[in-house]
């Protein structure tokens, strides 16, 4: 073997020869599923399919993914299921302490959002492998969706799809919720954003999931939609294709 190697490539080749390849335990897996949140004028919805998979196997056709964590806040963390459960457990636990420490005061959605950033960033170098969404109502009673990347970068949005079929659903949402690429007929103007009514939103969500279920193997079995209004949280369930 060459003793003196000068090129970058040779540096790597010597490394490959002399260093044992580290074959590590992989602490992550992908459990599929997809989630979607849309904010309305005085409501917000968080929806997700109920399938949990591992590789080509469907582990469960009904595993709850959207959680009502209390104080009119909905939460989901889609991706690696064990991390998702852990993150939501941690948040619920901390919310309990918050209540003890603040005379049972209601946690505002904005504070919840900031707190979740910290939960995620705390594991910056061993991240929770999830796409997190929360939904609720803001101080003015308007619907709010916050979405996160795995390490805590977050932003408030009007709508967001996450998980396996995010790339299938998001463009549809851009077009139908935020009216992207929609013109007003007969003019040269873009359609402006207006709030959708709840029944329209439910229709959009159902369409998004039935379509995603047609094309994506990790989406199916059931669709659970949690709706938050000032009256509280309610749940709707619709079956999806099980193939």
């Amino acid at each position: 073997m060459n003793q003196v190697q000068t090129t970058v490539a040779s540096e790597y080749s010597s490394e490959i020869n002399k260093i044992p390849i580290e074959h590590r335990f992989n602490p992550y897996s992908d459990n599929g599923g997809t989630v979607l949140g849309i904010a309305g004028k005085d409501f917000a919805v968080l929806a997700g399919d109920t399938r949990q998979s591992e590789g080509y196997s469907i582990q469960s056709r009904y595993e709850k993914k959207i959680h009502n964590v209390g104080d009119n806040i909905l939460m989901t963390a889609n991706g690696f299921a064990a991390d998702g459960v852990e993150l939501i457990d941690q948040f619920k636990q901390q919310l309990k302490w918050y209540k003890f420490d603040n005379q049972n005061q209601k946690l505002k959605i904005g504070s919840a959002a900031r707190y979740i950033q910290h939960l995620l960033y705390n594991k910056r170098f061993f991240p929770f492998y999830v796409h997190t969404l929360i939904a609720g109502l803001d101080d003015d009673g308007k619907g709010a969706i916050y979405s996160y990347d795995p390490v805590g970068s977050y932003e408030r949005e009007q709508c967001r799809a996450g998980g396996a079929a995010a790339s299938l659903i998001m463009p549809f949402l851009d077009n139908q919720v935020n009216f992207k690429n929609q013109m007003i007929p007969g003019t040269n103007e873009n359609k402006t954003i207006e709030f959708l009514e709840l029944d329209e939103v439910i229709k959009l969500v159902r369409d998004a999931f039935t379509s995603a279920g047609e094309r994506h193997i990790y989406v199916g079995d059931g669709l659970e939609i949690l709706i938050v209004t000032k009256e509280g949280v309610r749940t709707e369930y619709y079956p999806l294709k099980r193939d």
Binding site: Q59, S60, Y62, E63, A81, A82
Partner: peptide, 18 residues
Amino acid sequence: LLGVTYHASTIATGFGSH
């Protein structure tokens, strides 16, 4: 081993899942 959990009315591990 990953901490992944789920429930169902029928569960099998390993080859059983196939």
